[in-house]
Amino acid sequence: MDSADSADRYVPDSVRQAVKVLIVGAFGVGKTTLVGSVSEIEPLRTEETVTGAAVGVDALAGVEDKRTTTVAMDFGRLTLNDRLVMYLFGAPGQRRYWGMWDGLAEGALGVLAVVDTRRLAESFEVLAELELRGLPFVVAVNRFPDSEDHPVAELRGALDLTGDTPVVTFDARDRASSIDALITLVQSISGGATGPAGTEGTDHPDEAARGPVAYAPRQGERLPAER
């Protein structure tokens, strides 16, 4: 497994900081495709254990078990400059995997919520959970060839999004298009102060007043340790 090209796997020595973005979405929306099209390394796969006691469990329903399951997660890397790299972590959006988001979202810049318009309903609970957690996110609508062309306003309504959540359409197979979706995310996190608002949603009138989206620590979240 230590192949001849194992030296290529390393991060340049000059890099001092890593940022990360979380990619979530229902099964088959294009998370793996997105990671593959923007990553400069061959996308990697690793496993995380998730304990059933996920956040947001409906106590009344009582369907969530406490077993520990293993979830595969794929991720990729982008070198942004000689001192900064970005990691993209793709995580499944189904409720039973929400426990996995905890460790991934901690310290993340934000979340790209990938959506397939042919199966919108599968995204409802993903988006609701992101809103509940107060994570800064952008909805990235992956255009499939047989997707109908819905106006963004219509999608926003159908997804029941709050007024200031940016929505961007993109093609997960296309590198530039996927990077544009990431750019929209970063712009929205910085409240538009970092550059021209190129996408619908980032020029919301409240945006400037709101400033950068804050991380809302969840109840019971452990205190940050030194890092």
Partner: peptide, 17 residues
């Protein structure tokens, strides 16, 4: 975890992207 990314870092990320 507790800090939010500062503007300088976000600008650096944007420029890189």
């Amino acid at each position: 975890q507790a800090a939010r990314p500062d503007m300088e870092l976000l600008q650096e990320v944007l420029d890189g992207l």
